[in-house]
Computed example of a mutant assay.
Amino acid sequence: MDRGEDQTRILFFTLVKLAELGAKDRAIQISTTELADRLKVSQQTVSRHLMELERVGYIQRQITRKGGVIKISDLGLEEIRRVFLSLKSIFEVPPTTITLEGYVFDGLGEGAYYLSLRGYRRQIMRKLGFDPYPGTLNLKLKDPTNIQVRKEIEAYPAITLEGFEDGSRTYGGARCYKVIMGGKVEGALITAMRTHYVADVIELIAPVYIRQQLSLKEGDKVEVKVTVSSPQQSSV
């Protein structure tokens, strides 16, 4: 491990220690001396790391005569959560499937365009084993449990679609997970093809018109079983 990696590791430990002390829920008051004692590092190191954590937006800090008043920002909490999910996927034996439930809603109508692009379509046929219907099924995740599960899925290895250029513009890559929708339609959950949607939305593709196959209309609830694998299994 080089010096830069070592500094990054200690920086993250500082962030985690602040979370342990309660800074994830509220602003806490703590001196650099006390924090250094808890981390078993020098006061100068802690001061430097707090400055860096503040600079990158992971903490919010005010300096007082009694020390710093510190609270971890949403960005800092997201970084802790990201590392936690990564470690969880390494050390826990994952289930073979993860279940999500969402509600049908009309998307922006871009699915047909993206799935018709040769760069995506050929990869889907080769890596997922089907020719995609030109359109996606969009589901809204309405409860916190499903939204959290959706985030956790990202920690598992995915089938990746590589980005490409068509001469006029560049298209980004995507991550796919095989799924079964409504207990009978096989397809895939696809993410990061574009960024209009957030964590409470999933997009699904299949070789058939999913709405027709499952007789779905706006607002209907759909169960989606997502196939996941352990981190030791490499993505396609």
Score class of each variant (00 low, 15 high):
residue 135 G to P: 02
residue 186 E to M: 02
residue 194 R to M: 00
residue 172 G to Y: 12
residue 137 L to A: 07
residue 154 E to D: 15
residue 219 G to F: 10
residue 125 M to N: 08
residue 166 D to N: 00
residue 175 R to F: 13
residue 194 R to F: 00
residue 167 G to Q: 13
residue 201 V to Y: 15
residue 202 I to C: 14
residue 190 I to F: 05
residue 196 H to N: 06
residue 188 A to G: 08
residue 148 Q to F: 13
residue 128 L to W: 01
residue 138 N to Q: 10
residue 201 V to K: 13
residue 215 S to N: 15
residue 185 V to H: 03
residue 212 Q to H: 11
residue 157 P to W: 12
residue 176 C to F: 10
residue 193 M to I: 00
residue 191 T to I: 00
residue 169 R to E: 15
residue 155 A to I: 00
residue 207 P to G: 10
residue 178 K to T: 12
residue 220 D to L: 05
residue 171 Y to I: 04
residue 163 G to I: 02
residue 137 L to Q: 01
residue 146 N to R: 04
residue 172 G to W: 14
residue 181 M to E: 13
residue 145 T to A: 14
residue 154 E to I: 01
residue 163 G to S: 07
residue 191 T to F: 09
residue 137 L to P: 00
residue 126 R to M: 09
residue 152 E to F: 08
residue 134 P to D: 13
residue 211 R to W: 07
residue 162 E to W: 09
residue 155 A to Q: 08
residue 193 M to R: 01
residue 202 I to E: 15
residue 212 Q to G: 14
residue 138 N to R: 12
residue 167 G to Y: 11
residue 194 R to W: 06
residue 178 K to N: 13
residue 132 P to I: 11
residue 128 L to M: 08
residue 160 T to K: 15
residue 219 G to Q: 02
residue 132 P to E: 12
residue 174 A to P: 04
residue 200 D to V: 03
residue 196 H to Q: 12
residue 160 T to Q: 15
residue 191 T to L: 13
residue 127 K to L: 08
residue 179 V to A: 04
residue 132 P to Y: 08
residue 174 A to R: 05
residue 204 L to E: 04
residue 176 C to A: 13
residue 220 D to E: 07
residue 148 Q to N: 12
residue 199 A to I: 04
residue 169 R to A: 15
residue 214 L to G: 04
residue 139 L to P: 11
residue 201 V to D: 15
residue 194 R to K: 10
residue 205 I to F: 07
residue 197 Y to K: 00
residue 177 Y to C: 02
residue 221 K to T: 00
residue 202 I to L: 14
residue 148 Q to P: 10
residue 215 S to M: 13
residue 194 R to Q: 09
residue 185 V to K: 04
residue 186 E to H: 07
residue 171 Y to F: 02
residue 188 A to E: 07
residue 181 M to D: 11
residue 149 V to H: 13
residue 172 G to K: 13
residue 165 E to Q: 15
residue 138 N to P: 11
residue 205 I to R: 10
residue 151 K to L: 09
residue 215 S to H: 14
residue 170 T to S: 10
residue 181 M to R: 07
residue 167 G to E: 11
residue 193 M to C: 01
residue 167 G to M: 11
residue 206 A to K: 03
residue 185 V to L: 09
residue 144 P to S: 03
residue 172 G to R: 14
